[in-house]
Amino acid sequence: MPLFWRIFALNAVVLVAATALLLWAPVTVSVPVVFTEAVVLLGGLVVMLVANAVLLQVGLAPLERLSRRMATVDLLRPGQRLPIAGQGGVSHLIRAFNDMLARLEAERAASSTRALSAQEAERRRIAQELHDEVGQSLTAVLLELIRGAERADDPDLRADLRHAQETTRESLDEVRRMARRLRPGVLDDLGLVSALTALATEMSIHTGLAIHHSFQPGLPALDEQTELVIYRVAQEALTNVARHADATRVEIILRHDEGVVALRIRDDGRGLGVSQEGAGIRGMRERALLVGATIDLGAAPAGGAEVNLLVPLQRNGA
């Protein structure tokens, strides 16, 4: 039933009931109206208004549900749909809204794929330039400083050159770390488990966090994009822990079971609290959507925060 006729029918029910009550009820109206008759009329009016409000509330409930969903929908959490009942105007509106959500999710997934692919290509290019151009230049400077220190006769000059050597060596190491963060070569060469192990070791050394990892052996073969998504989610989660969690211990678990590969990162920090999701967390959600994965963030059982990434293996042909 269209919305117009539904509202009309609800009001008609109230009016018909009121008319029938006036026709068959032993109630009359005097001129002028006496007090008892006014009380009866006002009571009937209140009953009509309450009945009309209740019936309209029932009739417009689907629109209220649609309004709430429109206000809270998040395209990074796909699959949020309203149930469709009947074939009326409201049902058509809800069906159109669900179809619109499906199109928006598909378009966002496609645009995110293009954006993240371009981002990874740019990261690969910058990492290559850092390694080949900046790294080689710093290496050449370091060699010149070493030769200069060996030939220098002045002890003060030799000490200054050796200090410059240490500064240049530290800069070279930092450039190499930046290149690895931008594009982990170990992921391409040795696979996901080795890349996660290297990531945990490097983060532990440079942040002081005690990072414990447990990787289940026999991990199924994953495509390049899926491995990169898992690695980037782990990298972003560990970065968030180091920056914001005030934690001392982090646990990384990678396992596979019942058609999924699961990554869990748990810390003993101060938890997520009531803060809004930042760009890092939303970036993790966008990456998870690229491979049809789901990601949940919540409180860890013993305090702190926990990130769970579930990647379905069906996409990878397993």
Score class of each variant (00 low, 15 high):
Leu187Ser: 07
Leu21Pro: 00
Val260Met: 13
Leu82Lys: 06
Asp188Gly: 10
Ile265Ser: 07
Leu55Lys: 00
Arg270Ala: 10
Thr168Arg: 06
Leu254Asn: 09
Leu60Ala: 07
Leu56Asn: 08
Leu82Tyr: 02
Ala179Cys: 08
Glu306Gln: 11
Leu238Ser: 02
Arg81His: 11
Val250Glu: 05
Leu182Met: 03
Leu222Val: 08
Leu172His: 06
Ala262Gln: 15
Gly43Asn: 07
Leu116Ile: 15
Leu289Ser: 13
Asn11Phe: 15
Gly79Asn: 12
Arg266Met: 15
Ala200Asn: 08
Ser137Ala: 14
Arg255Gly: 04
Asp268Ile: 09
Pro32Phe: 06
Asp223Trp: 06
Pro2Arg: 12
Ala121Met: 05
Leu21Trp: 15
Val33Arg: 05
Asn11Glu: 14
Ala242Tyr: 07
Gly303Arg: 06
Gly273Met: 10
Arg158Phe: 05
Arg282Gln: 09
Leu101Arg: 08
Ile252Phe: 12
Ala234Pro: 00
Leu222Trp: 09
Pro155Glu: 11
Leu209Arg: 04
Asp223His: 11
Pro312Cys: 04
Arg287Ser: 01
Leu60His: 03
Pro155Ser: 10
Ala242Asn: 01
Phe97His: 12
Phe8Gly: 06
Ser117Thr: 13
Gly191Met: 07
Asp154Gln: 04
Asn52Met: 09
Gly283Ile: 03
Trp5Ser: 13
Ala102Phe: 00
Gln128Met: 10
Ala85His: 12
Arg6Val: 02
Leu101Asn: 09
Glu133Gly: 09
Arg181Asn: 13
Gly283Asp: 08
Ala96Val: 07
Arg81Phe: 06
Phe4Thr: 11
Asn240His: 13
Leu228Glu: 15
Arg270His: 12
Thr207Met: 04
Leu21Met: 11
Leu41Ile: 15
Val90Asp: 09
Thr72Lys: 12
Val14Asp: 05
Gly259Arg: 11
Leu56Arg: 07
Val193Phe: 02
Thr28Met: 07
Phe97Thr: 10
Ala110Gln: 15
Gln314Asp: 14
Phe4Lys: 03
Asp246Thr: 03
Pro62Lys: 03
Arg103Tyr: 08
Leu297Thr: 09
Arg285Gln: 10
Val311Asn: 06
Arg183Gly: 05
Leu209Gly: 03
Val54Asp: 02
Leu192Ser: 05
Gly280Glu: 04
Ala221Arg: 11
Val274Pro: 00
Val175Ile: 09
